[in-house]
Nucleic acid binder design. Structure first.
Length: 519
RNA sequence: GCUGGGUUCGUAUAACGGUUAGUACAUAAGAUUCUCAAUCUUAGAAUAGGAGUUCGAUUCUCCUACCCAGUACCA
């Protein structure tokens, strides 16, 4: 086979928000394409108009964009699916519903070559067949074993067939799956797989009622036309792989048939089964990349809105079912592109671990500069009506960032560095706010007020500790009393840090307020 | 049911026939600090079960169990 430029595609159906498992599939496609210097293409598979959900298409593209997964083809710079062909997007339109004109001839071609046939069975007739089979404890299957007694172009005369084609508008074209043929397939992840064609059914390829192809036909035709070299998709497609192989063969396209890779599904953190929105709601984690509101008004939380950095989300997702072959866990997108390899992709489904997702965010948060984090913190401060000097915010961030998982945690951790405590933790007060302690704490406060050296760790911090130790006062009790007065709770930054940040005036003010509130 | 896929600590995974079965998250204990967090140290924790091939199987083959997917005129 001649060397072809690598071209992979992500082909979602706009039936709802993109699940994180879908993002992972897109990510692996993207990594594979970029690693091989090829193209990552988006194609919208919307041949089922009944399941179309407004906004889903935009959501999918926005989600990928947030993750840094930028398509080379199919979507323009504004994030819109391309409808008219150009040099950059030669295969437009990239929405199957807008490609409806091109599929019928391919279906007819298969009929002409004897690989497919017209079927005139009504949905009701098929439902009856299913019910009858079920009554006998069997499963109805439309294939070699039953097609001979059903209503189709193989069982009626050519004249009758043309008449039905004319009169009826609910006929279909079905693929004629051969009997008892071993279909031999190769999967990039699973290796060699064989299936006996007798177990397969004669899939509907084209529907007169909708004047549209079904997934299988549209998918194969478009992958062929768009010169796709590798199909990387979810495991749910593995059972239809033999059909797809036979379709390529029937069209005579086996020379350019793409290679296939079927990705195992993402599983729920506890119990069995695939990850669903319900699990997220129940256990408190998002299953979607971005916040989503369904047309019915139902909300779903998103990783972005929950405070995850896209780099952390992507890194976490990449490691769910793939590994570099060593212990390394942190990868930027570019590093993933370098390191990714299909044969390190896990065969089994991976249970999603929300704790690990948080851990990744924490790691990425630490990697960011104080100034960068401060910039993200400023809007949150503004929400709390706090206007602070930017350099002061930077100083605060430097001290608190190791204690946080998300930027949004900053406020809970450090609100007392921006305004006086509004209340005092009751348990901490009961534990530490005793006369023998706070009288000493007040003396330390007086000492700080009188201190006139540099407001640094080495200055006021050291002096304060020396003062307490010199008097042989209980360090822990005194400090916790002070922290309660200054920060509203006994947990938090070191007293010296707090004093240095808020300054002497605030210390005095807060001590007086605590006296009033607690004594 | 049938067809296909899968199975290493609780979770994600490493070990492409030879290791005291490694790492990370989580858990627990200890150290440290004025508290909390962070950090450091340590601990417990796995090859689903059974046959076979082999000098030797986590790794190869078969059987069983369990899990997942598909079984639509949905994708």
């Amino acid at each position: 086979m001649t060397q072809r430029r690598t071209r992979v595609r992500f082909a979602p159906s706009p039936t709802g928000p993109l699940h994180m498992g879908g993002v992972r599939t897109a990510l692996y496609n993207y990594l594979f394409a970029k690693q091989n210097g090829g193209d990552f293409i988006i194609r919208i598979e919307d041949t089922d108009s009944h399941r179309f959900v407004p906004g889903a298409e935009k959501y999918i593209i926005d989600s990928l964009r947030w993750c840094g997964i930028i398509p080379d083809e199919g979507v323009d710079e504004n994030g819109c699916v391309v409808e008219t062909a150009s040099e950059k997007h030669p295969h437009a339109p990239y929405r199957q519903s807008q490609r409806r004109g091109i599929y019928r001839k391919y279906a007819e071609q298969l009929v002409a070559s004897g690989n497919a046939y017209y079927a005139f069975d009504t949905p009701e007739a098929l439902a009856r067949e299913r019910a009858e089979a079920e009554a006998r404890g069997e499963t109805f299957i439309y294939n070699w074993s039953t097609r001979g007694r059903l209503l189709n172009s193989l069982t009626v005369s050519p004249e009758e067939c043309s008449r039905l084609l004319q009169e009826r508008d609910d006929w279909t074209i079905r693929f004629k799956v051969p009997e008892n043929r071993i279909v031999k397939m190769d999967d990039l992840i699973r290796g060699h797989v064989e299936v006996n064609s007798s177990t397969l059914d004669d899939k509907v390829l084209w529907k007169k009622a909708d004047v549209l192809p079904t997934y299988h036909l549209a998918n194969i035709v478009d992958d062929h036309l768009m010169e796709i070299t590798e199909v990387i998709r979810g495991e749910e497609w593995l059972p239809s792989l033999p059909l797809h192989y036979m379709l390529y063969e029937a069209f005579g396209w086996q020379e350019t048939m793409p290679r296939f890779a079927h990705l195992a599904l993402l599983l729920k953190p506890v119990g069995n089964g695939k990850l669903s929105k319900r699990d997220g709601d129940k256990m408190g984690f998002p299953v979607f990349p971005l916040h989503w509101v369904s047309p019915e008004g139902e909300h779903s939380r998103g990783y972005r809105e929950d405070g995850y950095f896209p780099e952390a989300f992507v890194n976490m997702l990449a490691m769910l079912g793939w590994n570099p072959g060593n212990d390394r866990e942190m990868f930027t997108m570019d590093e993933l592109i370098q390191a990714f390899s299909m044969d390190k992709v896990q065969k089994a489904g991976a249970k999603f671990n929300p704790d690990k997702a948080k851990w990744y965010n924490k790691e990425y948060l630490r990697l960011k500069s104080d100034r960068e984090l401060a910039e993200l913190f400023v809007p949150i401060l503004e929400e709390h009506s706090v206007k602070a000097d930017f350099d002061y915010v930077v100083k605060v961030v430097a001290l608190i960032k190791e204690r946080a998982t998300f930027v949004k945690d900053f406020w809970d951790i450090a609100s007392y560095l921006f305004r006086d405590p509004q209340q005092y933790d009751e348990k901490d007060a009961a534990k530490f706010w005793k006369e023998e302690n706070y009288t000493l704490a007040f003396k330390v406060a007086d000492f700080i007020a009188a201190y006139d050296g540099p407001m640094t760790h080495e200055g006021v911090g050291a002096a304060m500790e020396e003062y307490i130790k010199g008097n042989e006062w209980p360090m822990g009790k005194v400090m916790n009393c002070l922290r309660l007065a200054l920060a509203g709770a006994s947990s938090g930054l070191g007293i010296a840090d707090i004093v240095i940040l808020i300054g002497k005036d605030a210390v005095n003010r807060r001590i007086e307020a605590a006296k009033k509130a607690l004594c």
